[in-house]
Every structure is written in structure tokens, then in C-alpha cells.
Nucleic acid binder design. Structure first.
Lengths: 126, 126
DNA sequence: GTTTAATGACGTAAAAATACGACATATTTT
DNA sequence: AAAATATGTCGTATTTTTACGTCATTAAAC
């Protein structure tokens, strides 16, 4: 039970989910916002600015790095983190059309048609 | 430990995180896509189309409903689910500028300036 | 009225995420 | 060389998520 079933979905959806998931915690959004504000890619003293311990911040940074949203460049004893602009660009290119495709099928507001098998999609590959 | 610290962040960031989190699983993205495709708001037999049990799908639906991304209208023994267009609209209005603000500060690619305290933001309220 | 189908609610087990302290390592600074 | 600073790694505890089966309820079909 509780076995990973994520691989059974579209790779595209899996990839998107990883990104969205990494955006799914206020601390990580705050980190991204901070990195964007201080373009100079300030390092782990991000934890001075957040109500979290250094270790926890480091953990969030790792997650963001794994999602590809940030990069870390070693500079002596320090590590300079910064936004990965390329990935953000990709995210924008995926998210906008995706959101668009969700809502713009006319304002069908829970019409009570019940089953419409005509609209059924191919099994397990939706 | 592992105590909830999410409340310590901007409400705006908290709200956004809830939405992004709900998008952070391929099953939920698949459900949204399916609902968008079958505008007719088909009910829980979504589980026929996904590699997950009905109970698990119901759980994902609850999560999406809590995030406000979908609505469920009772129709007799059935429940018609559908995309909440208003919320998607709000999401678009938040996400686009947010993504924009992250990457468009000029292509500063991890410049090794080190500490730049001039860019420090107000503590704990970033 | 009884069966059938659909749903929500509950319980539960495994896995993942969250949060932190302690330690080791590497790099400046002195 | 020694002290101070920054970082990553490891272990660990708690919470949350994921996934499912079972049960009760409700509405439709017969």
C-alpha cells in the first residue's frame, strides 16, 4: 500500500507535478522571491531571513535545485544560489497553456448531463 | 519537531502554496485534464480512467475541492464534478506575474558578488 | 420493497515531507 | 597554525500524503 503510482502517468504530467510540488510550500516560494529580489544570488544565510533553521532551509534549497528551479555555484566556502531562468521560462511555457486549457471550454458550470461516454478518453493515458 | 511553520509566512504565499501543492501530483493533473476534456463534469467513475482505486481518486478530488480548483454538484446518487473556472482565472492572474517576477531581472547568472546586504529584505516578512 | 450502483466516511499501513540538532569538512580570517 | 564561518551530511522525530479496503448511506432501477 501507499506504493508509488506516479510513474503510471504521462511523463509530461509527472514533470509538471514535480515543479508544482516544489512550489507547494510557502517557504520555497519565499526563497524564490528572495533570490529574485537579491539578484546577486546570496547564499545560505537565507535562513537569517526566514523563520526556519539553516538545516531546514538547506533542505528546501535542495528540493528547489532538484526541481531545477534554482542553481548553486560554489564560490570558496560559500555557495551562491540563484534562479534558473531557463527553467522558469519552461514553466511559463507549460503553465500558461495548461491553465488556459482547463478553463476556456466555455463556462460549462457543472451541467448535469451525467454520463457522457462520448467524451471518454483512452484508458490510463489521459 | 516537524511542527507546522507555514503560518509564519505571507498569507499570499500560503494561499499560492496550497494551489501549487494541489497541482503537485500527476493524478490530480490528470483529473483536471480529464474534467476539462469532458466538460460535462463526469463523476467518480474518473477512477475507471486512472490507474488508481476509487477511494484514492475520491481523496484526490477532495484535495482539489479544498484547493478550490473544482466544484462538486450533487445530482441524485451521483456527484458531478467540474473545473472551477473562477479559481483557475485567479490562478492565472497570480501565477503569470509571479513567474515573470522571478526570471526577468536581467540574466544575472549566479554572479559571484557574494554578500550584498544592500538587497536585504525585512526579516520574516519577505 | 428489494436489489444495484454511487458516493462519502472511517480506519489503516506505508511512504514522503517537514523540521531540527549534531557532526564533519572545507575555506577564509586572524 | 588556530579560530571562525559556511556548508553539506546524517540521524531522527513528527506530521502529512498516498493508497487502499471496508462499511454505511443514499438514490435510482427493477
Amino acid at each position: 500500500m501507499a506504493q508509488a503510482k506516479k510513474e503510471l502517468f504521462d511523463v509530461e504530467l509527472q514533470d509538471a507535478a514535480v515543479i508544482f510540488k516544489s512550489l507547494g510550500h510557502p517557504a520555497r516560494l519565499a526563497i524564490l522571491r528572495y533570490l529574485a529580489a537579491t539578484q546577486t544570488c546570496i547564499t545560505g544565510d537565507i535562513s537569517d531571513v526566514l523563520p526556519l533553521s539553516r538545516t531546514t532551509v538547506a533542505q528546501h534549497l535542495t528540493q528547489l535545485k532538484e526541481a531545477g528551479l534554482i542553481k548553486g555555484e560554489v564560490a570558496g566556502a560559500r555557495v551562491n544560489y540563484c534562479i534558473n531562468n531557463d527553467k522558469i521560462e519552461l514553466l511559463k511555457q507549460f503553465a500558461s497553456p495548461f491553465f488556459e486549457s482547463l478553463c476556456c471550454n466555455g463556462g460549462s458550470d457543472c451541467q448535469t448531463d451525467g454520463h457522457s461516454d462520448s467524451c471518454r478518453i483512452n484508458k490510463f493515458n489521459l
